[in-house]
Design a protein around this nucleic acid. Structure first.
Lengths: 194, 194, 194, 194
DNA sequence: CATGAATGAGAATTCATTCAT
DNA sequence: TATGAATGAATTCTCATTCAT
């Protein structure tokens, strides 16, 4: 039954994740989540104190996991340019595989608490790129530039180019070949300015 | 009477635009729109078959107006680089002034039909940049590149860097100085790759 | 339609009053009230911002009206003893006729705001008797005694003897003859202690 | 095992009593009771067919115990006046100490069956006073009066003056000095009418 | 044409009760 | 027997939409 408990919690999270990814936060009503998880509405509240808490957990976990992946990947590369490329490439590949925080960038939450969590998440995510940019500028690999603006532009660029077309609402056939590499080139050129 | 009808229709659109711009689609309930327009809720339904239709029209008009502005502005410049810079600069400036389609890029609609309209709108908007890129590549000003991907990256970059900080949830005072120009530089560098 | 509005508001209040009187606050669900008033649940919210507000209004109005009646009646009598007798008699008679604040004394609210309103109401109601007792003691009609305790005892005495048997949950046949006068005698004797 | 069963049953009753006394019937959810008793919710249903049955038993036992105490105490006194005083004093003292059926008189049950049990309980409780009054009248200690009405008034008087200020919602510190004795005087004066 | 009161489906949440383990 | 996860009906409240006036 220990197992059962964990299973259900995961099932709820999985169901909610899927619904949010497919139809935004508004598609993830408690009733819909419970149905998708094969449970009753009341069961949701055994595992989460409120709908908001469930959504916040989805968001927070998705972001923190993605941040961990990016940090690990950038740590491996030597030059800042390689780090930047690796980061964009990693996020892009994972986005195409549908296992990242895509919806955290696009879906607008209905709830102030969730919105707050998303803002924090976006900042945490942006910080990865800011750190990377700072380092590159210090090393002389990148020209001086506003780290905040550049980080926002990078995140926006690959969000728009990757997440939007990849979102389940749009048709997934149109995946342009080498899409990820093209975005990598765009971002690197923008940052290096050479 | 004819005039009266048109006036009311415009009043409704104006009120709805304002509400969406200020508080996202969530803030634009039929009741709130009617109140802001100085009309009854029932009156809304004389001019629009549904709330969705009203929101779709807001979105569509906003996008087409913005596209018109961009087309006009890019037509004036000579080089493709100048066109690109002018387009980004124009949208950016207008976004900071709060009188453009900013919200169309961020606020998640409450309705699938509105969401569909937003996707179409983003594509129309992206087309301006695609045309511009095609021209620049043909002229030899820009290196060969995937026009679709670059256009998406550009739109994403300045959406993220401009619209997001401009969104109702964040404080509008904190605007970084020369924000627009920094975004222009980012985009131009990315496209020219030099 | 002005009329219609007022009618419905009154209808809701009347329906709610009846339900509370018959089955306590728990019997007055929004759904039950709306059904009893011949309206939809949503209609309730046109007239009252929340269920609590409706219940508070019922309570407040009942108490303040009852207090007004008592104040008027006690003002007419000369001696404090007559005032006391008149007050008890008035409340008792009105309770037997079913048009007083009976439920304010017995039904426990489910809601903190309503509970707060009831406490205030009971205090206002008790104040009528405290004033009357103070006057009687000053005049030498009543012996010195704790006004607070005596007032509570009086209110409790006739609540228990009148409201409880009169409550719609019990059978209304058992009305003892001269019930009200017997309670009057009890209270007067207790206060005069002679 | 026999013992174990009985223990659990008592534990449940004790836990439920405490919760009701502290926070009214609303605070005594099955889950809260089971938690307080150190058992599972399911276990409750092994010992009681329903939540109502548990609450009814609490009420019934509390009343019958209180009635026993009162009968014993009144049996000890000689004069009916002393009996009356002793009864009021006993209940009052115990109420202030918080270990009696106080809540049975004030907290509105969530359930019609419990409400019915409470009415019966109040009647049983009132019978103690009725017997006492009959005796006093027969002995010539009390003037002729309606025993039913007087008993109800007495119970109401000290319920209102004692239990209400003792109720969980009010602060228990504010107990008026000699409160119990003042109520005793009130009741005795009312009954003796001299 | 315009009004806005009324509707009613749907949302989040609670809790007595059941039942597989 | 005991457990406690799961159920599902009930509750309060919202809001797009309709329709009598």
């Amino acid at each position: 039954m220990e197992q059962r408990l964990k299973d259900n919690r995961e099932r709820i999270l999985k169901a909610a994740r899927k619904l949010v990814a497919q139809g935004g936060f508004r598609a993830a009503s408690v009733s819909a989540v419970s149905k998708a998880a094969g449970l009753s509405t009341g069961a949701i509240y055994r595992y989460f104190p409120s709908k908001s808490a469930l959504m916040v957990e989805i968001l927070t976990h998705a972001v923190s996991h993605e941040v961990d992946v990016l940090r690990e990947i950038t740590a491996r590369a030597d030059s800042s340019t390689d780090k930047l490329a690796a980061a964009v490439r990693s996020f892009g590949t994972r986005a195409l595989e549908g296992r990242n925080l895509a919806y955290a960038f696009i879906a607008e939450p209905t709830d102030p608490e969730v919105e707050a969590a998303r803002i924090v998440g976006r900042e945490d995510f942006g910080d990865v790129f800011k750190d990377l940019l700072h380092e590159g500028i210090d090393r002389g690999e990148f020209p001086a530039q506003s780290v905040d603006v550049t980080a926002a532009c990078i995140v926006g660029a690959f969000t728009e180019a990757l997440v939007r077309p990849v979102a389940p609402t749009t048709l997934p056939e149109a995946a342009e070949p080498d899409l990820v590499e093209k975005i990598v080139v765009f971002c690197v050129a923008a940052v290096r300015r050479a």
